[in-house]
Simulated assay, not measured.
Amino acid sequence: MKEQVFNIQSEEEFIKVALQVFKHQFTNNKVYRSFCDLLYVHPSDVTSIEQIPFLPIEFFKTKKILSSTDKVQETFSSSGTTGSITSKHLVTDLSWYEESYLNGFKHFYGNIEEYVVLALLPNYLERKGSSLVYMANDLIKKSKQAESGFYLDNLDELTKKLIDLDRKGQKILLIGVSFALLDLIEKHTFNLKNTIIMETGGMKGRRKELVRHELHAILSKGFGVKKIHSEYGMTELLSQGYSKGNGIFNCPPWMRFLTRDTEDSLTILPKEKSGGINVIDLANYNSCSFIATQDLGKIHTDNSFEIIGRFDNSDIRGCNLMVL
């Protein structure tokens, strides 16, 4: 199945494989099966991806979401405030994750070996179980560049390296959490020509939250670049969407985004209508590929998407199945 997922070439192939994955997870994932049963949905009645039930993402906080009986190789966990319940993604086969982010990077950016990868992810490095750190660490290794590496608080060293490498014409990917990128440009103003600045979102309580266009305007000026790139990922997913600017994201061929009605979570909206974000991530073959997130967004006719906010808990309606 892995070969089928990562070689999807058309919408027809995506739908065919998604329906196969749904059938597999309905059969092998006890939590997801119970959820589908409560909705009276059976694979024999499902002929389109819009009819597939999307499991509320909150289930990853309280249930073991598994479609495999294999031993768990890695448990990825979300960051959370002290005392809060964090999401846990149980991964039985890390090769699914590795193929997903490596193929995804290649799809959008080309050969990883052309880049020096610099990761500015202090808060993620300070805890265990971060899927982002796992991905960044592997991208650093796969780049085969001696200059690639992680940075925590050594911003002066990072500044010198960025300027020196960029001046030499080296392609650079600087991937960082928003507050750390802001810390960097407060210490130094750049004029970079060969560097991709990719923010992974989140102030993590370190700074006041900014709307994306405001954050990107500050970062663009500080780094001297025209566009700020973004990565859309989360603990519960094994694939990422990427934006090359203006907050417009695209996803790899094995991933798809839909919007649901905020008043009726079982109703899928047409494109260009804002609603709750549902994600199909076929790389989640051994957990659950059909997830209703807490993000709000809009899907465009070309399948690109925007994230426009998040639900408050009080806004989540139409899902009284959380007692499962």
Rank of each mutant, 00 (worst) to 15 (best):
F54D: 04
F54T: 01
L55A: 01
L55R: 02
E58Q: 13
E58F: 05
F60G: 10
K61F: 07
K61T: 05
T62E: 12
K63L: 05
I65W: 12
I65S: 08
L66M: 10
S67P: 14
S68C: 12
S68A: 03
S68F: 08
T69R: 11
V72S: 01
V72Y: 07
E74H: 12
T75M: 03
F76L: 02
F76G: 13
S77F: 02
S78R: 00
S79I: 03
T81I: 03
T82I: 10
G83L: 06
S84I: 03
I85A: 12
I85W: 02
S87Y: 05
K88Y: 03
K88Q: 08
K88V: 06
L90G: 02
L90Y: 15
V91D: 08
V91Q: 11
V91L: 07
D93A: 02
D93F: 01
L94A: 02
S95G: 10
W96M: 15
W96F: 15
W96N: 13
Y97D: 12
E98K: 15
E99M: 06
E99D: 13
S100F: 04
S100A: 07
S100M: 03
S100T: 00
Y101M: 01
Y101H: 12
N103F: 01
F105R: 03
F105L: 14
F105G: 08
K106C: 12
H107K: 14
H107A: 06
H107E: 14
H107G: 00
H107F: 13
Y109E: 14
N111T: 06
I112W: 15
I112D: 15
E113S: 11
E113I: 03
E113T: 13
E114L: 13
E114Y: 06
E114G: 09
E114V: 04
Y115L: 12
V116N: 14
V117M: 11
V117Y: 13
V117S: 15
A119K: 11
A119G: 15
A119C: 15
A119Q: 13
L120W: 04
L120K: 09
L120T: 06
L121I: 05
P122Y: 01
